[in-house]
Structures are given as structure tokens and as C-alpha cells.
Amino acid sequence: MKRSKTMELGVGLFMLAGIVGLIFLGLRVSGLSLASSTQTFHLEANFANIGSLKPRARVTMAGVTVGRVESIELDTEWYDARVVMKLDSDLEGQISRDSTAAILTAGLLGEQYIGLSIGGDPETLADGETIRDTQSAVVLEELIQQFVSSMANG
């Protein structure tokens, strides 16, 4: 009887360890955060070219992650890309109307993310509004082409 009790304890701990491990994989390894997923608001931005930006890419402000890209779709009115971002609700009513959104690259060849920089307008953006001032992704091929043609001209 005593042996079976310690065995049950062992199995219980084993299964508990599995659950704790899964939580570790969720929080620490894949960076899910329980707090931010509950309280968010949305902003949109149109870009002429998003490069290789993907849904779930980071949205940062001064290098700090403040949200994620929720969806990317083609805006058929202007034929550019409409990006919907999900941001921490702490920032709701804090982002001024003339803020800029730029698609940046981590390192030379790294993944792409959105960097927000705050403008000076006292009026702020509300949930679901659009950031007007955007800066498209830098496409390496275009950059090289420009460089080569300027060399040729010069």
C-alpha cells in the first residue's frame, strides 16, 4: 500500500512537471503573455510595400515591444497593404495623430517588425483609427539597384 502511494505521488509530480513545462514553453520560449492578451486596442496603417512583414510580427516603440501585427491584407481601394496592429491598452489615447509607423529590419537579414514613433500633435488616435504617416519596408534589391545606377551615373 505504501509503495503504491509513493508511486502515485511520482506519477502526479510527473504530470505536473509536464504542465509546468508546457507553461514554460508558452511564456518563456514563445513569449505569450497572459496580461497583454486580455487588454488591447487596434490601430491600422497602410504601407506601399510591407516587404516580408508577417502576422504576429512585433510592434515596437523606442525598441520596446508594445504589440503585435494582427493581420495584413490588400486594400483594393489604393492597392497598398493594410496592416492591423494590436497594441497594449496602456497606450490607448496616448499615440498622437501625426505618429509614424515604419517597417524596420532586425539586423541586416533579420525578421521585419514595425517601429512606431510618437509625433507632437495633441490630438490622439482612438481604437480602430489609421496612422497616416508610414514608411515602407526597405527592399534590399531596390537599394542595390539604386546604388548601382548612381555609381553608373556618377
Binding site: L25, G26, R28, G31, R56
Partner: peptide
């Protein structure tokens, strides 16, 4: 790690 790993897809 956190930026590239997604819970649903990878884990």
C-alpha cells in the same frame, strides 16, 4: 526566441 517561436505553430 520569443519573437520567432509561436505557441500554436511551433509548440
Amino acid at each position: 526566441m520569443q519573437a520567432s517561436v509561436t505557441f500554436l505553430n511551433d509548440v
